[in-house]
């Protein structure tokens, strides 16, 4: 195995520049944020939604998915070698985690006045709880209540 295999050039793909990785990560990050907003809007997960209005939610998700993609694919010619699959998966995983954390945090700030139902039996399990409250508030329940 090449001793430089896991060096910086490997993680920057065949393009070999960190600016390429930065633009790629921005593209992946915003696309995932866009999808999360689409999901939140479509399935009424208010606790992770950025917008009170459905139209704005859909509009934001379309913009968040298409604009970074356009930016990325017009900035780089992807008909050449770009990534090995493991490198691509690595960056996608990192961006996914950050996009999720970012979505949860922004929505938590926006919906800071969202409260949980007072009755224990009214608290839904799984992601259905995000219809009632924010993710971070739901997570805080783990130490207090048993989920259904």
């Amino acid at each position: 195995m090449d001793i430089f295999r896991f060096g910086a050039w490997y993680w920057t793909g065949y393009v070999g520049t960190w600016s390429f990785i930065a633009v790629y990560c921005a593209y992946v990050f915003f696309s995932i944020i866009g999808v999360m907003q689409f999901v939140a809007t479509k399935w009424n997960l208010k606790g992770i939604s950025f917008f009170p209005n459905k139209k704005w939610g859909y509009a934001f998700s379309v913009i968040a998915i298409t604009c970074p993609a356009t930016w990325f694919f017009t900035s780089y010619d992807c008909t050449g070698l770009t990534f090995d699959a493991p490198v691509q998966l690595f960056w996608i995983a990192i961006c996914t985690i950050f996009a999720f954390l970012c979505t949860f945090t922004i929505a938590h700030i926006i919906h800071r006045d969202m409260r949980l139902p007072k009755k224990k039996n009214d608290v839904p399990g799984g992601i259905d709880i995000l219809k009632e409250t924010t993710y971070w508030r739901a997570i805080s329940l783990l130490s207090k209540r048993k989920p259904q």
Binding site: Y27, V39, C78, Q88, I92
Partner: peptide, 13 residues
């Protein structure tokens, strides 16, 4: 190698 795999990934999410 990037565009369609990304779309599939977003659909799976």
């Amino acid at each position: 190698d990037i565009f369609m795999p990304m779309i599939i990934f977003l659909i799976l999410i």
